[in-house]
Amino acid sequence: MTDPKKSQQDLVVVKNLVKYFPVRAGLLQRVVAWVQAVDNVSFTIRQGETLGLVGESGCGKTTIGRTILRLIEPTSGQIIFNGVDVATLRGKELKAMRRDMQIIFQDPYASLDPRVPIGESVMEGLNVHGVGTRQERFEIMMDTLKKVGLEDYHARRYPHEFSGGQRQRIGIARALALRPKFIVCDEPVSALDVSIQSQVLNILKDLQQEFGLTYLFIAHNMSVVEHISDRVAVMYLGKIVELASREDLYRDPLHPYTRALMSAIPIPDPTVKRERIILKGDVPSPLNPPKGCRFHPRCPVAVDRCSQEEPPLKEVHPDHLAACWLLK
């Protein structure tokens, strides 16, 4: 999937990634079914870019993020980070690689230890990886706190003393302390009030500039993703249905699902009237996804073929991929 026109290097290459979770039942806890969380997904993340990953709850976007970090083992498929296959790493090599990839979690209230001063929390990764002397680690921690807009005296305080936005900045500082190359941002602003969301987004953007970071930005809010991403992948039921540059995707969404998502984005102005695409029903269960195109039962323009064969993700325009039989 590498494009020869791009001089930028791929930092993360995901090839045919599959993750099924077993469903167990009965006395013997036999596997009775599989949740097809991620099903044959391929994409790349280029050095220094932000790839936005959007989709509704349960579409597998968090699973992808965690599988890349190997917090979850993939069922099959390859994840190549910085030229190395992540799945083959063991022990010291795996630990060394993890220094380069970090994660920012969704809920800043649940992801910090309430009984540890936040300075200690930020230093934890440095201690685990044995970076420098204690004094050096302390200095890195203080410096990192400043980078996210916190003050020296904050280091001794406990999580409950901070507001939601500040806690999320602490979460960013934790991820940043090891100076990673790549950060998975899993819904980093969706738990925050809208009045402080863009402050956190700005910090992420500034840090990306300063440290040359690469982000996988997982979110369900299309407007937020537009503000931060260079390219955007749209997921539906474990599949990527569309992948394009931000400009192309938002100007000219190709897949019917992307179009429905776009039309559902509320505009805070009651004087604006527009047509909405209302989809039938709910997202089907990933336990038993529909045959053919997974979106066909809800698709307003589905044809016979859609219920029979699964459409591949193919290049419709240069660098604009979509998985739909109706697109030539």
Binding site: V194, S195, Q199, N202, R251
Partner: peptide, 22 residues
């Protein structure tokens, strides 16, 4: 006014703003 300016809008020319402090 600041609350409205912080709402991310689709295809906006400007980035959303934020309210300092809490």
């Amino acid at each position: 006014q600041m609350l409205m300016a912080s709402v991310p809008r689709l295809r906006a020319d400007q980035d959303p703003e934020f309210i300092t402090g809490q």
